[in-house]
């Protein structure tokens, strides 16, 4: 098999994920794009298992499993934050998140 095919797929998916993070305004859509990026990495890891000449190793697969677990945890906590923010502002646009404390009267 030509290993370059899944590699390029992974690269393109990662680029799409970056595009999505920088383009989307809704926080949940940003999280979806982050999932795309994580998946691309998983694909890279699994393909590396095939191309790297380690005798009898499944390291890439093991790493991919760990990434999946981490992604699940991240989505859980992230969505909890999103919901709490929704309760405060009743909208989830990342544009409007105030990261700094404005000084009084400008």
């Amino acid at each position: 098999m030509h290993a370059v095919i899944p590699y390029v797929t992974a690269a393109l998916l990662f680029g799409l994920g970056v595009y999505g993070v920088l383009r989307r305004r809704n926080a949940i859509l940003v999280l979806m794009a982050v999932e795309l990026m994580l998946n691309a990495v998983n694909l890279l890891l699994v393909t590396a298992d095939v191309t790297l000449p380690t005798p009898g190793g499944h390291r890439g697969g093991a790493f991919a499993l760990f990434v999946i677990v981490l992604a699940a945890a991240e989505v859980g906590v992230g969505l909890a934050i999103v919901l709490q923010y929704y309760r405060m502002r009743s909208a989830v646009n990342v544009d409007e998140v105030a990261l700094h404390h404005e000084p009084e009267a400008g």
């Binding site: 920088l22 305004r25 990342v94 998140v97």
Partner: peptide
């Protein structure tokens, strides 16, 4: 430093 979240993301990437 006080840039909004999306702009910070653009900067990092």
């Amino acid at each position: 430093h006080r840039a909004a979240l999306p702009r910070a993301a653009v900067a990092v990437f």
